[in-house]
Design a protein around this nucleic acid. Structure first.
Lengths: 341, 341
DNA sequence: CTGTTAGCGCTTTCAT
DNA sequence: ATGAAAGCGCTAACAG
């Protein structure tokens, strides 16, 4: 077992060269002749020195080639969500081509300080559940790229959520409709519930509130009352929460004509429950989703939803972080005209 | 913007205490009075010093609280696979409770050296695609826990793959059957193909070869010929590869009576293709899976498969790494008696 | 209980 | 093209 106890200094002594030369052989090829470099590298190989210690390099250079991906929720949930995992895919793909590595970070931990000193930067995917993290990220001197939420002064990647919501709602609703909204993370509650007059959760930076605004704009244009009694909060885009909301909304009297859902997962759950209750879609009930996950296209009837590319988002976020560009981007979205409207 | 430029030394000067005292206030509460500690911590808070620099700590202490999870393939693929992502869930859950962080590492990169000097250890999930990594892991002085494959002298977590394969095969086959096997990563090829006489890929440590052995033992017991012509290699447990294999095997003449699949993803793809060809399951064709993913239970007819808990595997691997225990464990498995046999 | 000090292993001027 | 030396920021042994 190769104990990797050799330090650069040891090697320098063994080869009777200065430490600087060994260091240069590994890090700055232009600082010595190619031949000399070859010799040194070969000798190192032979004696089992595999290059400078990374921990020391990190301290000295202030660079680690590690990028932290701060997720909104705990890793466990994020990894199984199709939208989030596609995003992670995009990020990791780009990092890989730059020889950088990916540190997954939960949005519900206490602090970001465990890693802030050595990571090269942060990609922040959605507003972290622990809002303290947002402050720390704001104050940090490290590069930060935000996705699907906003920190003033930091580059952001997202889509025009309000416009997307407006456009899909416009397609779904007709004058005189009763419209319900199944929203995501609208208030600070761990339970599925109607929002009524609860104070909105970080209302300015959250994509959910943008979407809400878009929906409501479309409703107002049709002369429909916007009433928070018909807006549900769902804490996570996850089957079991969505199922509860689906039951509640479809068992309300009078039953809504349209339900606008802030994720496909929610919409699919609703669609399935509607099926089980023999409620015809779109005949008796119109449904819209949001995201454009693959399953939404496989379902019968297939879902009318907003299609956004999580993969592109991930790639772009990683590229932006690496390039250091401070530019923000709004990615395009498509309306996927399905059969549920 | 808080530039975090303060060092422990600066702070010591400002507060007119020695550096050791500041350091102790943060790391070793028992080394000074509670009151003094409180004062110091408060003062630090006030002047904006949030604790010792982590990069320096890592170098000094040789501990980073980062655990690398080495995946068999690239991260992109792993994150979307239900089995792998459940495993990641289990790992991250346990790491989280120990305030450790998760670094995702592709099994297809060149080397593990980028991180070996500072991570606290490795969890290795499946044989890394780049076999060089296995050597580096073997030689490393850091803790390593392997899952679903083996490095001599390192603790391993897995199930008895051979026995599981044997048992499920035994249920599926009858004397005189023609049996095909849809295997996973049996040979070193990027394409779906029959294995014929190709040399087997790391035959000793691979779970696929254990499963193959189990299947073949069951076949021999029934007096059935084991012939590699009827064994397919699939490079990844992924829909598109599986679809190809499904077509090939069901369009072979004579058509097999039983197909033993090394993953549920493969089996489900086969099941769907059989449906599209109006081949009755289990009437005209029996199918077995492996893993016990949720979707396998939702399908009609639901899949007969081996159920193993990826979540437990992940939790156990992380716990073993953290505790430093050198013990290996074989987790139990269940046969999920479905309707495809 | 507190302060001084010698490194952890490396990179990078700067002089040669 | 190469070598000597000063830290990067911290911790832990040791002495007080």
């Amino acid at each position: 077992m190769n104990k990797q106890k050799l330090t650069l200094k040891d090697v320098a002594q063994m080869l009777e060269v200065s430490t600087a030369t060994i260091s240069n052989a590994f890090n700055r090829p232009d600082q010595l002749s190619a031949a000399r470099r070859e010799d040194i590298l070969k000798a190192c190989q032979r004696i089992g020195y595999h290059g400078p210690n990374k921990a020391a390099q990190i301290l000295r250079k202030g660079q680690s080639n590690i990028v932290a991906l701060v997720l909104a929720d705990n890793i466990a949930y994020m990894v199984s969500d199709p939208v989030a995992s596609t995003f992670i895919k995009g990020v990791s793909k780009v990092l890989h081509t730059h020889n950088k590595h990916l540190l997954l970070y939960s949005g519900n931990v206490e602090s970001i300080r465990d890693v802030i000193d050595f990571v090269d930067g942060f990609i922040c995917y959605g507003a972290p559940e622990n809002t303290e993290l947002t402050h720390q990220l704001t104050a940090s001197s490290k590069p930060v790229v935000t996705v699907d939420f906003n920190i003033p002064g930091r580059p952001a990647i997202d889509i025009d959520n309000e416009q997307a919501a407006y456009e899909i709602a416009k397609r779904a609703i007709r004058p005189g409709d009763r419209v319900a909204i199944l929203g995501l993370k609208l208030i600070a509650s761990a339970n599925t519930c109607r929002i009524y007059d609860s104070p909105l959760h970080c209302a300015d930076s959250s994509i959910s509130h943008r979407r809400l605004k878009g929906y409501q704009r479309a409703m107002q244009e049709q002369g429909i009352d916007t009433d928070n009694e018909w807006v549900w909060h769902i804490p996570e885009s996850e089957g079991s929460y969505a199922r509860q909301a689906a039951r509640e909304v479809l068992n309300s009297h009078p039953r809504p004509d349209v339900v606008l859902c802030m994720s496909d997962i929610i919409a699919l759950e609703l669609l399935q429950y509607a099926g089980s209750q023999n409620i015809a879609v779109p005949g008796a009930l119109r449904i819209t989703g949001f995201d454009g996950i693959e399953e939404a296209a496989r379902t019968r009837p297939n879902l009318t939803t907003i299609c956004q590319s999580s993969l592109t988002k991930g790639e772009m976020a990683a590229e932006r972080l690496i390039s250091g560009s401070q530019e923000s981007t709004q990615l395009p979205f498509d309306i996927l005209a399905g059969e549920t409207v």
